[in-house]
Design a protein around this nucleic acid. Structure first.
Lengths: 138, 138
DNA sequence: GCTTGACCTTCCCGTGACTGGAAGCCCTAT
DNA sequence: ATAGGGCTTCCAGTCACGGGAAGGTCAAGC
């Protein structure tokens, strides 16, 4: 199968698939004309990667997940540990974004948002209402 | 003031400050020895940028915020619009992360996490339980 | 005066995960 | 023969820096 068909079936841009080959996530065959020739297993793998990426796993995590997927003797505990580590990362990011959101919402609500120049958002940023210190980014 | 002192006072790495000069966010003077010579206003500006970055504003948004800050005749509505746009971005990211979290939590809870190889996380990724389609990434 | 060490300078490369574009080959249809 | 679409490689850019090399500068101590 050529890359265009694979892109459609796996739901990934052709560019991305070439990139995944370059970094060794997939290893399609090559036809006599130099075209990549994907097997069904490659398509399957690419769809797997696409879903893992959709859940926010990094490329390196995807590589590990693929290795676990291929390893028929794996312990599900290993997979779960990887997933739970990623869940912690997600939770941390959410917490950080919520802290930003809360601070910024406070500033926005204090701002009249009219034609006058006084703006608590700007004075807040200038005077230190937002946390470059300990308030938000640890 | 030299860059080291500025870095400490503004709470930013010296590397970052040099980068901010390179992209035109600050324009410190230069001493006869070639060292950057920062005025208080530069330090103030850098702290402002640091706090805006801490709230997740991009560099280009920081540039706009600085321009508004410098423009004494600005309308606070312009600042508020910028901040609210950013709030929407934050909310969208939070929503996306929460969708990932929910999906992944479902998979993790279904996984025994023991020495056996059966793993709903892997089968979920392989079979399409997670959204590369419409479920999570729009 | 000389050395030492901390500080400063520029320059270039690397990050993650792609995306865009140029130049050129291949295949099919007309 | 030509037109188009798809495929190939390679190079450059994204965003916001961080690491490190090679070298100039400054203040303190001997």
């Amino acid at each position: 199968m050529n890359i265009g068909d694979v892109a459609e079936r796996a739901g990934l841009p052709a560019k991305t698939i070439r990139y995944y080959e370059e970094i060794g996530l997939v290893r399609p065959l090559r036809g006599a004309n130099g075209y990549r020739a994907f097997r069904d297993s490659d398509v399957h793998k690419l769809a797997f990667i696409g879903r893992a990426r959709g859940l926010g796993f990094t490329i390196e995590e995807c590589r590990k997940l693929l290795a676990l997927y291929d390893d028929k003797g794996r312990a599900s505990a290993d997979v779960k540990a990887l997933a739970m580590g990623h869940l912690r990362d997600i939770a941390a990011k959410i917490a950080q974004l919520r802290a930003m959101e809360a601070t910024l919402q406070g500033l926005v609500q204090a701002c009249a948002g009219d034609a006058r120049p006084d703006c608590p958002i700007l004075t807040g940023l200038a005077a230190g209402g937002a946390g470059q210190g300990a308030a938000c980014c640890d």
